[in-house]
Amino acid sequence: MQRSALLISILLVVAAVGPTAGAVAAAGPSESVGTALESHGGDADTCTFPYETTDATGAEVEIPDDPDRVVTLNPSAAQTMWEIGAEDEVVGVSQYATYLDGASAKTNVSGAGGPSVEAVLNTTPDLVLVPNSTHGFAAERVEQIRAQGVPVYVFGEATSLDYVANKTEHVGRLTGNCEAGTERAAEMRRSLELMRQALADEERPVGLNVFYGYTSGANTFIGDVMAAAGLQNGAASAGVSGFQPINDETVVELNPEWIVTPDGSSVPETPAYNSTTAVQEGNVVRVNTNYLQQPAPRSVLAAETILQAVHPDAYEEYRQLDATNGSTETAAPTTEGSETASQTTTAATDTASPTSSTGTPGFGVVAAIAALAAAAALVSKRQ
């Protein structure tokens, strides 16, 4: 029983965050699988093919023509395609992308323990988008796809929201949707800038991200989501880097004023957590898993959910600034009670179905995690 619980918690982490440091990181690709990603402009004159670029593994990728048959091997890549309005070009998705409107009609390219090479090739793709986590645990399968002459692009690990915005632009460039990718990235950056303005005079209480015994430390995009929403990342200040287990002693020492958790996870009912200001005052923010744990455009909605709970006045100011500047997004809805509701929406997309198995985050982090992520996602959604 204990062994099963431990396995589930590991899977959930991997799934939820993808990778990390320490023992978890050791399972994944080395740091040579880059994390940097430059911004790509959306000038129509430069959005031409053939297009040559280098992915996070150092592989030279040539895309001969504007692709109209794209396979995404993890939910974050799929979400990005949906957010730039290119879902019609997607022919294959992983089983954990079904929360996206219309994704269930796409070919499921997931197989036992990772992507199915046969299923991917049967879609006759022009391009395959591969998150770092998927490459980490299924590198051989990815290379089998590449060996068939299919352009394959592997992303690096997302360590910030700036990376996510750049990734959104880059997906647009890779798929011939340059203008849409640039516009969606600009919307993200604009929302984040408005949050910064609204939070200018606010104090930042200590927050702690908790999911299945793990936390998000420094150099994680979830940590950056929390910072964007006006929290201090307690785990980072305690010296935690990446996604790591967190012990009760650290929780007590940090005494977080707020706890942020994906909606599929729960706050441990232990003396350590029960002693925190966050638990005693009911300051637990539950955020849509598909937004909090996927390095994709909807991570901004996760930040909005946290901002509304922690800094309601700043949230209202943000909404006013947003309206004044003509936002195309719908901010997180008003919540009731001490535990913030996690469902947020965007103008052109649906939120996760409460009955779908989609808890997997689709990060681009290190390795063995994606496989685990899948299992984790299932568990988190079915609890």
Rank of each mutant, 00 (worst) to 15 (best):
A16N: 11
T182E: 15
A302T: 03
G282P: 12
V279H: 12
E83L: 13
V251A: 15
E60F: 05
M1Y: 04
C47Q: 12
H40V: 14
S342G: 14
E253Q: 14
L73Q: 05
A27P: 03
S266Q: 09
G264Y: 01
P268F: 14
V279G: 03
R196Q: 05
S327E: 03
G234E: 08
G326S: 09
D68H: 07
F49V: 00
E140F: 00
D350Q: 11
E179R: 12
S353F: 09
L127S: 01
T346R: 08
A309C: 14
S265L: 05
H135P: 01
P271F: 14
P205Y: 15
V300L: 03
E203G: 12
K106D: 02
T360S: 11
S32R: 08
E316I: 02
T46I: 15
E179W: 03
S110F: 00
R3H: 10
P354N: 09
T360G: 08
V251G: 13
S356G: 12
D68T: 09
A227Q: 07
A36M: 12
P354W: 13
E38G: 15
D43S: 11
S191D: 03
R146H: 12
Q2G: 05
V117T: 10
N177D: 10
G58D: 14
Q383H: 12
I63H: 02
P256A: 09
T168R: 02
A200F: 01
D55W: 01
M1N: 04
E317S: 07
Q244R: 11
R298E: 07
Y214F: 15
S30V: 13
A218C: 14
P295G: 11
R189H: 04
T305K: 05
L73N: 07
N288M: 11
S160A: 14
N255R: 06
A138Q: 04
A227H: 05
A77G: 07
P333R: 06
V128L: 03
A218H: 11
M226T: 04
L37R: 08
G239Y: 04
A236Q: 03
K106Q: 05
S39C: 13
